[in-house]
Design a protein around this nucleic acid. Structure first.
Length: 428
RNA sequence: GCAGAGGUGUCCGAGUGGUUUAAGGUGCAGCCCUGGAAAGGCUGUGUGUGAGAAAUCACACCAAGAGUUCAAAUCUCUUCCUCUGCGCCA
């Protein structure tokens, strides 16, 4: 959500921004907000002065009652009753208008960074830097589930029976590898100075509606029956929700946090040949990084954060590249975002394994997360988030890149201490 | 899960329908006093929205929401949370 003052003072900039994102349908919203806002302010003035009158009359009644001038008091009561009727009328109208303004404001996208490439959809995303040389082996790389099955590391047939499509049993060394990657990623981020957090895995609807729109919620979130609770789709939800309505001590900024959580997603309407197996699933685990900082620090953190993910993948000897998200592919809350993509030697292309975003104050404004600055003013903090690593999807990149001709998978040096010293996972 | 007690500003805490513009203290800031400091004295100190060039003014906010009333921190209902005891449980 952007600052309504930006629309009041510079609606052209807001419109330009909408055009840059190819959302011309939303252009009328800007003038609509402008008009509704004017009306809302007029109504507020009207309502406030009515209330002022009522308050004055009420005080008078109080004094008259004390002096036992009941007759006179009753006359004024009648007066107040009339005022109250009017107040209710104005309030109703005001409520309607402010609800409409809020709805519109939620739809107006955040202002995007100057250096975001302009493009209509994800086909216009721009490749950034590449890290490590992509390998093309001299033997055929099977589909990832076939590799995992050969290694005795996965049982999808059973998970279909117990839980349906989109789940998995990881088994033996592969399950251990899954945990090892998360543990390694956790320690990697702790070494970068981040604070490790295990958050709640369920959150209230109040938090959910703060971090996403109703449609997004319906497409992603699993609701617990009979409770006001949802399974988290990412730890970002509860990590940011933690600071909802809070005024953070300026000295505590920047907050640099790394959280572990399972993630649950409905993934409504996502299907395709490359979605078989453990690429797109209802349940996965993720090590995440979250930064809450002052506005002037956000750009530096953004660069640092996605580089950390790159560094992690490089240390695991997996080639990656940065893919810069273009204006049309950028979610409305985001100022700037990029994906980290890992090399798939089987598909001979890169695929998404993580995503880094700078949301400026758009998310903090929705959740009312602020800090007190040196002047004593309460200002909205900037929030950023990035995937450190999210297995089992990441396992696809891992096993494809480390698969040997004999069907075994080499474990890179840095991971071996988390695997009990094991150097490779072999076919049984 | 059951029972009891609670939720008020940075914090502590008073306040059971109308002089509450939320007492008092504490913390913080400024000034006076002092050679300097402590102590003491004085003054100012919450948030949001709107109006205004500004001083300032108005409205709202006492966990959240709804209700009763001319008038609600105060009364009623619902929800949430905290504490204490009991029960259950990895």
């Amino acid at each position: 959500m952007i600052d309504i003052n930006l629309i009041r003072n510079n609606s052209e900039l807001v419109k330009e921004n909408i055009k840059k994102k190819f959302q011309d349908k939303k252009l009328p919203l800007v003038d609509e907000v402008l008009n509704l806002d004017k009306k809302a302010r007029t109504l507020k003035q009207e309502r406030d002065s009515l209330r002022q009158n009522r308050n004055a009359f009420s005080d008078k009644i109080g004094l008259l009652m004390r002096d036992k001038k009941i007759e006179e008091a009753n006359k004024i009561k009648e007066e107040v009753r009339k005022i109250n009727e009017k107040i209710i009328e104005v309030e109703k109208e005001e409520e309607l208008i402010s609800a409409k303004i809020k709805k519109d404001m939620m739809l107006i996208p955040n202002i995007i960074a100057d250096d975001v490439p302009i493009g209509e959809n994800d086909s216009k995303n721009v490749e950034g830097e590449r890290f490590l040389e992509p390998k093309i082996p001299d033997f055929e790389i099977p589909y990832h589930t076939d590799i995992l099955e050969k290694l005795g590391g996965i049982d999808i047939d059973s998970s279909r029976r117990t839980s349906g499509q989109g789940f998995y049993y990881l088994i033996g060394d592969i399950a251990r590898l899954h945990s090892a990657i998360l543990s390694y990623a956790r320690d990697f981020m702790i070494d970068k100075g981040f604070t490790y957090v295990v958050p709640p895995f369920m959150i209230r609807s109040e938090v959910v509606s703060g971090v996403m729109s109703f449609e997004e919620m319906d497409d992603m979130m699993y609701k617990i029956e009979g409770e006001d609770l949802f399974l988290i789709g990412t730890s970002e939800h509860c990590m940011i929700g933690r600071f909802m309505g809070q005024i953070i001590d300026e000295n505590k900024l920047p907050l640099t946090l790394t959280s572990y959580s399972p993630c649950f997603r409905k993934e409504k309407g996502a299907h395709g040949i490359e979605e078989r197996g453990i690429y797109r699933i209802h349940q996965f685990e993720k090590q995440e990084m979250i930064v809450i900082c002052k506005p002037e620090e956000a750009n530096d953190w953004y660069e640092k954060m996605w580089h950390y993910t790159v560094e992690l993948f490089v240390s695991l000897e997996i080639p990656v590249r940065q893919l810069i998200c273009c204006s049309g592919d950028l979610a409305d809350l985001k100022y700037k975002s990029c994906d980290i993509e890992a090399w798939s030697p089987r598909q001979k292309k890169y695929f998404e394994v993580g995503s880094c975003s700078n949301l400026t104050d758009a998310q903090a404004r929705r959740l009312n997360i602020r800090y007190k600055n040196k002047k004593g003013e309460n200002v909205f903090a900037y929030t950023l988030n990035n995937t450190v690593v999210a297995p089992p999807r990441m396992l696809i990149a891992f096993i494809e890149n480390h698969l040997q001709k004999d069907g075994s998978v080499i474990i890179p040096e840095v991971l071996r201490k988390y695997m009990g010293g094991k150097e490779k996972i072999e076919i049984k």
